[in-house]
Nucleic acid binder design. Structure first.
Lengths: 124, 124
DNA sequence: CGCACGAATGAACAGGCGATCATGTATATT
DNA sequence: AATATACATGATCGCCTGTTCATTCGTGCG
């Protein structure tokens, strides 16, 4: 894959983040890209329920095993999940609680918007 | 469109979003895609400082006006920003506080990861 | 050992996306 | 009205990315 990692270091910005530099923006973007696809969102959401093997995931979500594996690779790379072999299977789980928080925040936001006002219509 | 996950007879979910359906996943993904690009992240981060016109943004971030406008269109559509005309200019600002929270959470996560473990190495 | 199962990888293809260039629209100034 | 400024839109083009197909690697079991 592409995954060419540049020697990024994150400038420690205090919260109330405000203006961030290009590097930080790139990092955030890269990480958030994990949640920018329905398949990965569903994977993560399912893993929120607890550890799970690849084929279980594939079955539960309705994707091919290969596709799931490919996405898990990305999620692994982005440190959103970790996998551990157990016999024939590999059990995946969320890397830490942060991920869950992020997901919920995202869901919160979407829910809030829906309640908010009418439809986001096609932009004139 | 509406959100379906909250009403689910989701067994024992205390606080979590838990398993979400395809629709919800798609919505989340769509929204999170806003943060999946450095340009938009920088735009949002800059707007966290306060309202700002398009050309100001373009200058501050170092993008072409056209590009910024295009991205703002996306952000508008996703309800992350709102724009209001004021004379010749159009002042943009974050749609609400949720957006800021989301951004900060994202930054938090990234920062946490950096501090956390060593480098995310190339995947074997 | 050989075979089946689960997972990972590689190649390739199609669709989507972000940036640029060029042009159109709105508002203010003269 | 004419022009300049500020923003928006449309078209086009590379690039990236998600999926599928085929294959390989790893592991337990007969």
């Amino acid at each position: 894959m592409y995954i060419a990692w540049m020697g990024h270091e994150l400038e420690h910005k205090q919260q109330g983040a405000g203006v961030i530099d290009a590097q930080a923006a790139e990092l955030v973007a890269e990480t958030m890209q994990a949640l920018s696809t329905p398949s990965r969102v569903r994977i993560l959401a399912h893993l929120q329920e607890g550890p799970c093997s690849v084929t279980e995931l594939a079955a539960a979500i309705g994707m091919e095993q290969s596709a799931v594996s490919h996405q898990l690779r990305v999620l692994r790379y982005l440190r959103l999940v970790v996998g551990e072999r157990q016999g024939r299977n590999v059990l995946y789980e969320l890397h830490d609680s942060h991920v869950g928080v992020l997901l919920e925040e995202a869901l919160n936001h979407v829910a809030h918007l829906q309640i908010g006002h009418a439809a986001k219509e096609l932009i004139p």
